[in-house]
């Protein structure tokens, strides 16, 4: 259902955009009074709108071909009559012209636009109502499990480091295990956004992520320091990460 609503939203955007285009690309067969303008810059000497782009079929002009009505042509009733004259194929010579002024009366697809935005709103609200519920998707990690895993891994690393025989081996161990952690539990937790928002609301989610990000940054710094060969800095950050993960877990509830 949610996917269907998503597709309808795209269709609405498409119809809305096409309808919006008709606000400035107006039909040539409306009541001539609708083409008048109060703007001296946008109207010609008779008070009718000037076209913003050339219109009409390409015809010979000064040795080249150019549209029959150049940009700036005034849309007088005579010009409109010539433009909207029905051809052999049953279509007017010029279906629409580009104008520089918006008018409700000239906007041919306004009701399409209104319909599109109403449907867009309804689909958006529908999607919002259907989203979440706090359930963990099949195949996705549970946020609590990910944090517990991360906490366990970091704490285990912290506890094992003193037992490793050399600084070089400790550095290698840190790079390997934190690199693994970044790709597993931390990445998995970061992907549970929708679940967290559903369960804790946006404010609660923000507080959880604030704590988690602090811990993750310490892990990242510990990894970088180890890769640079600075064991002390690395261990400091591992130790600081542990309570931060504990706080994240506490905030998760």
């Amino acid at each position: 259902m949610k996917t269907l609503l998503g597709w309808i939203i795209w269709v609405c955007v498409g119809f809305g955009a096409i309808s919006a285009v008709t606000a400035y690309f107006v039909p040539t067969n409306l009541d001539p009074d609708l083409y008048t303008s109060n703007s001296s810059e946008k109207s010609g000497e008779h008070g009718y709108l000037l076209i913003s782009s050339a219109a009409g079929p390409m015809v010979p002009h000064d040795g080249k071909t150019a549209p029959q009505w150049p940009e700036g042509t005034e849309l007088t009733p005579q010009v409109l009559g010539a433009m909207s004259a029905v051809q052999e194929d049953g279509e007017p010579l010029v279906k629409r012209v580009h104008v520089g002024e918006f008018s409700w009366g000239r906007w041919s697809h306004k009701y399409w636009f209104i319909g599109s935005v109403v449907l867009l709103t309804l689909c958006g609200l529908g999607q919002r109502a259907l989203s979440g519920g706090g359930a963990v998707k099949k195949g996705s990690a549970d946020p609590s499990e990910s944090i517990a895993g991360a906490l366990a891994d970091v704490a285990a690393l912290r506890d094992e480091l003193p037992t490793i025989h050399s600084d070089r081996a400790r550095l290698e161990e840190i790079v390997a295990r934190l690199g693994e952690l970044q790709q597993t539990h931390l990445a998995a937790f970061a992907e549970t956004r929708d679940v967290l928002i559903s369960r804790h609301g946006m404010g609660g989610f923000a507080r959880i992520m604030d704590a988690f990000a602090g811990a993750e940054r310490k892990v990242n710094r510990a990894w970088s320091a180890a890769a640079d060969g600075l064991l002390g800095e690395s261990i400091d950050n591992i130790e600081m990460a542990v309570p931060m993960f504990e706080e994240t877990k506490r905030r998760l509830g």
């Binding site: 949610k2 609503l5 998503g6 939203i9 955007v13 809305g16 955009a17 919006a20 606000a23 400035y24 703007s39 810059e41 946008k42 913003s52 520089g100 918006f102 636009f113 935005v117 867009l120 709103t121 689909c123 958006g124 609200l125 999607q127 919002r128 989203s131 929708d194």
Partner: peptide
């Protein structure tokens, strides 16, 4: 300066932009 910007198109785009954010 020539009053020739399609302000209504900006407005319609703005409305659609807002409504697109209502969903998930």
């Amino acid at each position: 300066q020539g009053g020739d910007l399609p302000y209504a198109l900006y407005g319609m785009g703005g409305l659609m932009g807002i409504l697109l954010g209502i969903g998930g």
